[in-house]
Design a protein around this nucleic acid. Sequence first.
DNA 1: CACCAGGAATGTA
DNA 2: TACATTCATGGT
Length: 202
Amino acid sequence: MNSLEKLYWKLKSKYPQLHQQWQLWCKWPKTEKEKEEIIIGAILTQRTNWQNVEKAINNLRNAHLCSLCDIKQVEPKMLYPLIKPVGFYRTKAEYLREISKFIVEKYRHLAKMAQQNLFDLRKELLSLRGVGKETADSILLYALEKPIFVIDEYTKRLAQKEGLSSQFSYDALQKLFEAQLKKEVRLFQEFHALIVIEGKNH
DNA sequence: CACCAGGAATGTA
DNA sequence: TACATTCATGGT
């Protein structure tokens, strides 16, 4: 077992059950609707905490605007009051419309989208406004179930603390994780979730 | 009022 | 490619 595998098992035994939010993100299998909510959540969670995202997601659900197809149809302004709790709600409403429009018009639904290869999908996602590496990779891993490791601030901090690498850029860490772990979607999902839980716990 | 919260976009060497 | 700076809001 290498150092990353050891770290995974250490965290897994430390947190035998995932925090509420991560039960959805790591759930298996997911419905198409749940996958769409993951994408919506990935945009909304930027620069805010999950508690606020949950409020917004609930508002969207109650308004029957919690699917990519629905969001694509409505004026972004309709989303303002619903997603207000997450902050940056004007910008995020635009981002949601943009990604929904892109996915629905190009692929129609996520199952179709997931057939596209990882490299092209990542490039497409990164070309959208409001989607950087972390958000793109979160969508790829948790909604499209592609084997790509998500790096975030918690991952960087933990990597430094554990002395896992000499480089801590996004790309360097992603390469490291993917090289030392089996490229299994479930493993990548759960490991990243555990890293965040550990990070928030400190 | 200050600070926090799972970033992204742009500029610079 | 990597690091620094700038931008953008509501909750506590």
